[in-house]
Design a binder for these strands. Sequence first.
DNA 1: ATGAAAGCGCTAACAA
DNA 2: TTGTTAGCGCTTTCAT
Lengths: 320, 320
Amino acid sequence: MSRTLNLPERVAPETRQRVEAAVRELGFVPSRAARGLITGRTGNVAVIVPDITNPHFASLVRAVERTAREAELQVLLVDTGEHKEEEVRAAKSLAREVDGFIVISPRRLHRALDALGATPAVFVNRPVPQHSSVLLRTAPAVAEALHHLESNGHHALAYLGGPAASWAAGERRHAVRHTGRKSGFEVEEIVVPGPTFEAAFGTVGRVVDSGATAVVAFNDQMALGVIAGLRDRGLSVPGDISVVGFDDVPMAAMVAPPLTTISMPTDEAGTLAVDMLRQGPASRELFGTFVLRHSSGPVSRGRASVAAARGQRVSGADRA
Amino acid sequence: MSRTLNLPERVAPETRQRVEAAVRELGFVPSRAARGLITGRTGNVAVIVPDITNPHFASLVRAVERTAREAELQVLLVDTGEHKEEEVRAAKSLAREVDGFIVISPRRLHRALDALGATPAVFVNRPVPQHSSVLLRTAPAVAEALHHLESNGHHALAYLGGPAASWAAGERRHAVRHTGRKSGFEVEEIVVPGPTFEAAFGTVGRVVDSGATAVVAFNDQMALGVIAGLRDRGLSVPGDISVVGFDDVPMAAMVAPPLTTISMPTDEAGTLAVDMLRQGPASRELFGTFVLRHSSGPVSRGRASVAAARGQRVSGADRA
DNA sequence: ATGAAAGCGCTAACAA
DNA sequence: TTGTTAGCGCTTTCAT
C-alpha cells in the first residue's frame, strides 16, 4: 500500500488501481508525522519573522508560503515580536520538527546558530557563515534615486538610519553615504531610536535644522513619519522637502502623496529562499528597484517656510 | 524518563533531578511527531487566512501566534490567496496534522466543513453551525460614528460595501443602513468590485454624484482609495467630504489625513480564538470601537468644489 | 510483484 | 516508585 503511493511504477497496474480507488473512497491522507518518524523528513519549514504585522515581512512570508505549498511543504510561522531570544528558543524547539528554517529576522545574533543543529537554514538579509542567505541589495536603486534628486536640484540630504544590528540598515546606509558623497551630496546622518513611524516623526526637528532639501528614510513607515512630522510643522512634501523610503510596502502607493521609494523583490526573495533550502550553503543577491512617485520632486525655490519651521524648533515646539 | 517530563510529581525527587540534568546536558528535545503518534495530539494549530498581506489579517495572525506559543502550540500558516478551494484542500490535508483550525477566511463556503472531519475549528467572522466562532461586531461603533457625522451636519451618506460572501460585509452594511435610517440619514449604497484601494478609487465618480457629504467604506484600504480618488478630482478630505473606514489598520494613523475609522479588537479576537479551541462549540462576540481622527469633520459650506467635480464626471473624466 | 516484519521516538498500561 | 512492553502509522528491508 505504501508502495502504491510512493513508488507507483513498481506495482502492478491492477493492484495500483484497486489501491487508488480505496484511497479516494476512504479519503485516506497519510500521516506526515508517522512518515517523518522513519524518513527523517517532516515536510515542514519554519519561517521566523520579527513582526508579521510589518507589511514588508508579510510580503516575504506570503511568498514563502506559496512556494512552500507548491513543494508540498507546510509552513510553521514564528513571530518573535522583535525579541531576539525568542528566535533562539524557536530554533531549538523546532530544529527537529522541520526540514529547514527561513530566518527573516534581520538582527544578527550568533547564539542562534548553535540551536539550529544540523537543520539547514536560509537567512534573508543576514549573511551567515556556513549558511545560505539571500541578500536584498539596494545600491543601484539608491544611485538612481540620488540621481533623480540631484537632477531636481537637491544637494543636501538627510538620511534616517535603521536599527544598528540589522544588515539591511548597514547596506542601505552605506549605499546612500557612498553614492551620496560620490555625487557631491552633503549627507547628514540622523540616528533614529527605532524603525517606526513615531520615531521618525520625532526626528523631523533635526531634519529641518539640517538644512536638507531631501530626506531618505530606512523604510516606508519612517518615510511616512517624516512626512507627517513635516506637515505638522506646516511644511509640505514634496513642495518644501522631498522624501524617499525603502521597501515599497503596499500602502506606499495608497497614501498622499504616493511614496517615492525603493521597491524590494519580496516575492522572488521568498521563493528563492525556499528553493535554496534544498541546495547546500550559498549566497544569492537580489536587487531593489527605484520607484518614482510623488513624495519627491524639484527643490523648492524660496525655502521661506522651511526657515520659518526652523524657527519653531528654537522656540521649543519640537515634538518628541 | 517520559514520566519525568510529563508527570514530574509522580517521580522520586532524586531520580527527577538526575533525569533533568541529563536532559539539559544533552539538549534533549522530545519529538512532537512521535508523541503525537500515540497521544493523538499534535501540538499544532492551523490558521487559515485569505491574505497575510492584509494588515487586518496580519494583526489577527500575530495574536493567534503569540497565544498559541504561550500554550506551547505551533502555528501552521495557510494563505489561501483569496482562493476558496485552497481552503478546502488545506483543511483536508491538515485535518490530522493539527489539533485545531482557526479559520479567518471570511467568505462562507460550506464544502470546507466536511474536510475538517472531527478536528475542532473556530471561525473568525463567520458563524458556522456546530462550530465555534468569534464575531467582530460593529453596530455600536457605527452608531457612534454616525452620531459624530450627524452632529457635524451630515445627512447624506454613501456606503461602499464589502465582498458579498463575507459575513463582515453583511454585518457592517446592516449596521450602517439600519443605524443610518434610524438617524434620518439618506444612505446611498455603492457596490464595489473588490475590497481594495483600486476598486474604491474607481467608484468615487458615483460617490460624488450621489451628493453624499460623507462616505463610509467597508475597510481602511477602501477608505484610502476614496480619499485618493477624491483628491484626484480636486476634492479635499475632510474639507469637502468626510471619510470613515473600518479596521484601524496600523497605517490608518500614519496617513494624511489620519483616518477616522472603526477599530477592531484583533488581539483579543486572536487570543480568544485559540482559547476557544479547547472548549466545545460556542459563539462569542467582540465589539469594535469608534476612533475619531481627521478624515471626518464638519460638512462643507459652499459645496462649490463638489459641484465642479460632479461636472467632471459628465465630461468623461471619470477613472475606472 | 507482493506479503511480512522490524523499527522510527515516543507514551500508556501494566508489572514488579 | 520504577522498569518493561506494546503499539501509534508509517517506510524499509527481506522473504516469498
